[in-house]
């Protein structure tokens, strides 16, 4: 008898293993929803698939006469703009700070404690300060994402760069490279796949910060909509929205992974063709 930890599913069996829980979950939901609707036709907590499809049609296809636009796309555009701006600023600062802290002992001594201190502050606790300082507009929401994910990304990247074997750094110097050339040609390329990886890991927290900020003060956005319709127990809108957010998150994750594999094949050994 083989040990449990040596049994590796492959091909079709792996696919079936992966999809089965999803199908079971969907079936359970259908059963529960049907049973509840048999008891109470006005049931709101477990809406039927039909009810959700109707709502999706209203939210994603029909123009809202009050705003003149389609709510789902308007919300998606607003949220992605905030998320994109926030994550771009965070990634760019993480790259610069992470390279400096990871490579230069001077920068590590100067910035390390500051970054460590900022990293332990719960970002949501800073949100009131951001609303007071930047107002209730876009800036506060973007800054929340930046503050929320940058310290993690900086520390992750700095740690990765500091772990580049000393031999490589010395070898670079014996080949005549300056500090700048070592940063540019030794540290930066080795930082990029890790930066993409840490961006992937930061997507989750970034969504949390975005939706929190939108829930508290906003008039458009995926998080705003979910919290708005919560007042009417509109699970038939909330569930499709949550599914849409999950789909977007998975798509970004896959896109980043693909970019990393294409651009930095050496960083994905065993995956290279």
């Amino acid at each position: 008898m083989r040990r449990l930890l040596n049994i590796r599913p492959k091909g079709a069996s792996r696919f079936i293993l992966g999809t089965a829980p999803l199908i079971v979950l969907a079936l359970l939901y259908l059963l529960a929803s049907t049973a509840q609707h048999a008891l109470n036709p006005n049931e709101k907590i477990l809406p039927t698939i039909g009810a959700m499809v109707d709502q999706v049609r209203i939210m994603a296809v029909q123009v809202d006469p009050q705003t003149g636009s389609i709510p789902l796309w308007q919300d998606t555009f607003a949220s992605l703009r905030r998320l994109g701006l926030g994550l771009s600023i965070a990634t760019a600062s993480a790259l610069i700070l992470g390279l400096a802290v990871g490579l230069l002992p001077l920068a590590r001594a100067g910035l390390g404690p500051l970054i460590a201190a900022v990293a332990v502050v719960p970002p949501i606790a800073v949100l009131p300060i951001l609303f007071i300082t930047f107002g209730l507009g876009e800036t506060a929401k973007i800054v929340l994402i930046v503050i929320g994910v940058t310290p993690f990304m900086v520390r992750d990247l700095a740690g990765h760069i500091a772990a580049i074997p000393e031999e490589q750094i010395v070898k670079g110097q014996t080949l005549g490279a300056s500090t700048w050339q070592i940063a540019l040609r030794v540290a930066l390329p080795q930082a990029m796949p890790r930066l993409l990886e840490s961006l992937r890991l930061s997507l989750g927290p970034a969504w949390v910060f975005l939706i929190s900020a939108e829930a508290i003060a906003s008039d458009v956005g995926l998080g705003y909509r979910v919290f708005l319709v919560r007042r009417y127990l509109a699970m038939d809108i909330i569930l499709p929205y949550v599914a849409w957010i999950a789909l977007l998150a998975v798509a970004f994750d896959l896109i980043l992974l693909t970019i990393s594999r294409r651009a930095y094949p050496w960083a994905h050994p065993g995956r290279s063709r």
Binding site: E167, Q168, V170, K171, T174, Q190, W266
Partner: peptide, 13 residues
């Protein structure tokens, strides 16, 4: 002064 170490002497990227 050129150097060759036992390991990690070349750039992996």
């Amino acid at each position: 002064r050129g150097v060759v170490f036992q390991r990690y002497s070349v750039f992996p990227h």
